[in-house]
């Protein structure tokens, strides 16, 4: 099946027209920036606080916006209509994801500028952020496909936010070696480790295992996303 740019662009255009009239999506885009403004004075060069708005942008604007958009399509039966049109899986999923990806990138960059996010080794940082973006968009798509309603997607999505974004901050304080060890495998924790290494002038050797962890999470989330989509394309 061929990829049609016309169909892909039509889906992106529809997403844009729909998103700018959706207050929930506009709010999800604004929240990380508001948090960045709050954290700006508190950062005091602490990496965990400095990177928090970027992770919030990935989870809120990335995952939550995507899950809201996908789930609303399911709830209103528009996803079914798209699936029954000649649009392919790739055109639908990429068309739906492009707008969220661009929105997340803009929100993330604005948030990072506000808190003074340190940019060392731009290429590595960009790669980590790109992987994380794809991963959170996949999480959002999976949550959207598994939820029956938009409100249910928020309920299912909240643990993702808590585990992936809050986990690295609170796990050490909650105690328990096992919990800390589990959290250490999370891509967000690996992102923080890598960021810390880069600020101490580390290079590829210092962050290669962190990068691998993030890449594996990204690949796994993409596979789960595609499997979920293919399972959900049929009614039960």
């Amino acid at each position: 099946m061929t990829f049609s740019m016309v169909r892909f662009q039509a889906i992106v255009k529809k997403e844009w027209k729909d998103a700018v009239k959706n207050p929930q999506i506009l709010l999800l885009a604004a929240l990380p920036i508001l948090f960045a403004l709050v954290f700006e004075g508190m950062a005091d060069n602490r990496l965990d606080i400095i990177s928090y708005p970027a992770l919030l942008a990935l989870s809120m604007t990335g995952a939550f916006t995507q899950s809201t958009m996908v789930c609303e399509e399911k709830e209103k039966h528009t996803l079914r209509v798209l699936m029954l049109s000649p649009a392919t899986v790739a055109e639908i999923l990429l068309g739906k994801s492009l707008l969220t990806a661009l929105l997340t990138l803009v929100v993330m960059i604005i948030s990072m500028i506000i808190v003074g996010f340190p940019v060392y080794h731009f290429a590595y940082l960009a790669l980590m952020l790109l992987f994380s973006l794809v991963m959170f968009l996949s999480f959002g798509t999976i949550i959207g496909l598994l939820s029956r309603t938009v409100s249910e997607s928020s309920i299912i999505g909240l643990p993702v936010l808590l585990i992936f974004v809050m986990g690295p901050f609170f796990a050490p304080d909650l105690g328990g070696d096992a919990l800390v060890k589990i959290v250490d495998y999370l891509p967000t924790q690996q992102f923080m480790h890598a960021l810390s290494a880069l600020t101490e002038d580390g290079g590829f050797n210092e962050i290669k295992w962190n990068l691998l962890n993030i890449a594996v999470w990204t690949a796994a989330s993409l596979v789960v996303c595609l499997v979920t989509y293919n399972k959900r394309r049929f009614d039960k």
């Binding site: 039509a10 255009k13 027209k17 209509v81």
Partner: peptide, 22 residues
Amino acid sequence: NSGLYERLSIYDNLELFCKLYG
């Protein structure tokens, strides 16, 4: 189930499907 995009106009809804069907 209508499966229409509620925030879009009738024209915008049909324009999308014109493009999808070529």
